[in-house]
Design a protein around this nucleic acid. Structure first.
Length: 408
RNA sequence: GCGCAGGUGGCAGAGUGGUCAAUUGCACCUGACUGUAAAUCAGGCGCCCUACGGGCUACGGGGGUUCAAAUCCCUCCCUGCGCACCA
């Protein structure tokens, strides 16, 4: 890969500071060293790895891309590495991650969706300094057993076992498979193959990224920087905030209305972190928000601004305006959303069957429960549905708090 | 290879012949309260049946014993621990 050496590198102090101080947990070897490198005017290459087994990108991931965006704007080289080969092993950091061989088609499909979502943050159209996409199967699939053995010889079993996840599983006497040791090894080798200057990832990736640092030092005799970013968590319970398995994630491709609503449902305590990690507001602007909170302003206002800001990033300002208006009308004032699912049915059918067939209700038993709980209301007549065998008359229905369906 | 202990619902983890569709915690759903906050409280949480009742499918896979099995027996698969191996 050849790129122009004279790509202009921005060494603006404040911009650099913004890029290396925000949403960051730790920088290895040190923040000072990184600052110095960025101030030197040299172009560095930075990569972030993505998992091609799913096309789910949520607000927690956006943190990394916002940092990459800042670095990209400073003129640095950005590489997105698609872990199509490592996906076959499954990252031990996340025990739910799939260990399935993906077809090329799956990968391409997920990648297209990924680009579409991340494209709202990163500028994939920049021609002067294009963002590069690489696949680690390119080099990992070709590794010989000889090379693999050699790679393994860079780490001791004790070193591997130091990893939190492994240590914990040892202690809990849970299975720990040999092939799982290869994950950090192979991810580490990615850094060598790409010959990058820095890798960015969540704190859960620390071990894997540091393995890369070790290998880069051995094979390329260079210092690879590792930047770990903070994970969004519930400040009260410490629970991961954006968890697929816990169902708390806010996906980047969700509708403006859903996204707005989910952000409003987050705990107040997380407002500041959300502004820092998920928006482009400057540190100064965020400090102002914080001051208002401290001064006793209703957190709801700040949260609305947060939701508006974030929805605006992914759906545009107009959609954010609409989502806000919609939110205030529907939930604050008890109205009905503008765009609701409309299905046609006639009264020869039972209302419950219509909803189950449509998918809003998971089963007839569940439907019966919902009716018994008083969760189903015909909004037009303001009447609760009390009989599970009510026929599907025309009208607008609300099931629970969030589901609205109109029958024509 | 040998021995011992295990494999239960989305996860964790009880239950060791009928009262088990399976205690409990987390997650989830609904209601109350609210700012659709969060926290809290109450209820629910396999599926089907116009149901204070009935049926079907489920406790790693397969087979068996029994009127009756998640629970007992056989077998296969998987995991942990210990021994052996490490000259």
């Amino acid at each position: 890969m050849i790129w122009k050496k004279n790509t202009s590198i921005d060494t603006d102090k404040e911009k650099i500071e913004e890029a290396i101080s925000r949403s960051i947990d730790t920088i290895y070897p040190s923040r000072d060293a990184l600052r110095e490198l960025l101030l030197s005017g040299k172009q560095i290459s930075v990569y972030v790895g993505i998992d091609p087994t799913a096309d789910y990108v949520h607000l927690g991931h956006s943190t990394n891309y916002l940092i990459l965006e800042r670095l990209h704007k400073l003129g640095h080289k950005i590489i997105v590495l698609v872990g199509d080969f490592t996906a076959m092993i499954g990252d031990p950091s996340d025990k739910t991650s799939a260990r399935i061989p993906l077809t090329e088609k799956d990968v391409q499909k997920n990648l297209t969706s990924f680009k579409q979502q991340i494209g709202k943050i990163l500028d994939f159209k920049n021609k002067q300094n294009p963002i590069e996409f690489r696949f680690n199967s390119e080099w990992l699939a070709k590794l010989s057993l000889k090379k693999i053995i050699e790679l393994s010889s860079n780490f001791t079993v004790q070193h591997m076992l130091e990893r939190d996840m492994f240590e914990k599983r040892m202690q809990e006497k849970k299975p720990l498979f040999v092939h799982e040791f290869f994950y950090p090894l192979l991810q580490g080798y990615d850094s060598v193959a790409l010959a990058v200057d820095m890798e960015i990832g969540g704190t859960d990736q620390t071990f894997n990224m540091l393995a890369g640092r070790t290998l880069v030092k051995r094979y390329l005799n260079r210092d690879k920087f590792v930047m770990t970013t903070t994970l969004l968590e519930n400040p009260v319970t410490g629970e991961k905030l954006m968890s697929k398995s816990l169902g708390t994630g806010i996906g980047l491709n969700e509708s403006a209305e859903n996204m707005f609503g989910k952000i409003m449902a987050l705990a107040d305590e997380g407002i500041e972190q959300m502004f820092t990690d998920c928006t482009r507001l400057s540190r100064i602007q965020i400090a102002e928000k914080k001051d208002r909170l401290m001064a006793g302003e209703n957190p709801k206002n700040l949260k609305i601004e947060l939701a508006h800001e974030i929805v605006g990033m992914y759906h545009g300002v107009q959609a954010a305006d609409r989502a806000q208006k919609n939110f205030q009308e529907v939930f604050s004032a008890g109205g009905v959303p503008e765009n609701i699912l409309t299905i046609s049915a006639d009264s020869t059918k039972l209302l419950g069957d219509v909803f189950v067939d449509e998918g809003s209700v998971s089963s007839k038993t569940q439907w019966r429960r919902l009716v018994e709980e008083g969760a189903v209301v015909n909004i037009e007549t303001k009447e609760k549905i009390l009989d599970p065998f009510t026929r599907a008359h025309h009208g607008t229905y609300r099931i629970g708090k969030k589901t609205f369906i109109r029958i024509e």
